[in-house]
Simulated assay, not measured.
Amino acid sequence: MKVLTPDTTVSEGPDRMLSERHLSIVRLVLPKGKTIKRHRSLMTVTVVAIKGSIQFHTDDDVTTLVPGKAVVMQPGEFHWLEAPDEAGEVMVVHGVLAQ
């Protein structure tokens, strides 16, 4: 078992909690007014809101992530995030899922 603890000194951007070949876990802190540019991952991506409110965009949709709400994307799906109204934090898990 691994116990992961956030770096509480990170007040903006990524807090890389785990980085392995087929699995990455990142706590992402997004201050009000900030945006993470459009990008994609070669792995399945799960994003879980843990604090505040973040707008999560894909090319076809937008959803507001609030604590407890999550999205799951397939590899290669473009997405971006913004915090237009208030700061927010999400946990981002990139992984290769077992078939």
Rank of each mutant, 00 (worst) to 15 (best):
R16V: 15
D61T: 14
A83Y: 04
K2Q: 10
V62F: 02
H22V: 04
V90L: 10
D85A: 11
S19K: 12
K51R: 13
H57N: 08
L30M: 08
Q55D: 13
R27H: 06
G95M: 14
L4M: 11
V72R: 13
R38E: 13
M73I: 05
W80S: 11
K2M: 08
M43W: 06
I50C: 00
G68Y: 05
F56W: 07
V96S: 12
V92R: 02
H79F: 09
H94M: 13
A83D: 09
H22R: 10
E82T: 07
M17L: 14
S41E: 11
P6Y: 06
K51C: 08
D15N: 02
V93A: 11
T63Q: 15
T5K: 15
S41D: 06
W80D: 03
L65E: 04
V92Q: 05
W80A: 10
K51F: 12
T44H: 12
I50M: 14
E20G: 11
L28S: 01
V71C: 07
L65A: 06
P75H: 09
H94L: 14
E77S: 08
S53V: 00
V48T: 15
R38W: 15
D7L: 00
V45T: 14
L18F: 01
P67H: 06
V29Q: 00
R40P: 02
S24E: 15
H39E: 14
M1N: 12
V10D: 05
V26F: 03
V62R: 08
V71T: 07
V29T: 15
E12Q: 07
R38S: 14
W80T: 02
V71S: 04
L23M: 15
A70Q: 15
E12A: 15
A87R: 09
V92N: 03
V29F: 02
G68N: 05
V48G: 02
V72I: 14
L97V: 13
V10S: 08
R21D: 12
P6E: 03
D85Y: 10
L81F: 14
P67E: 08
M17Y: 03
M17G: 02
G88A: 07
V29P: 00
D7H: 07
L30Y: 04
T46M: 12
A87S: 14
I54S: 05
V48F: 06
V47F: 01
L30D: 02
I25C: 06
I50P: 04
G76C: 09
T63W: 07
M43C: 03
E86S: 15
V72E: 15
K2I: 09
K2E: 12
V10K: 08
I25W: 01
S24I: 01
L23P: 04
K51E: 15
P6I: 05
V90F: 04
T64C: 06
K69F: 05
K34S: 11
D85H: 11
M43H: 13
E82D: 15
A70L: 15
T35F: 01
P31R: 03
V29N: 09
P31Q: 01
F56L: 00
S41L: 05
V3T: 13
T46D: 07
H57T: 04
S24Y: 10
R27G: 00
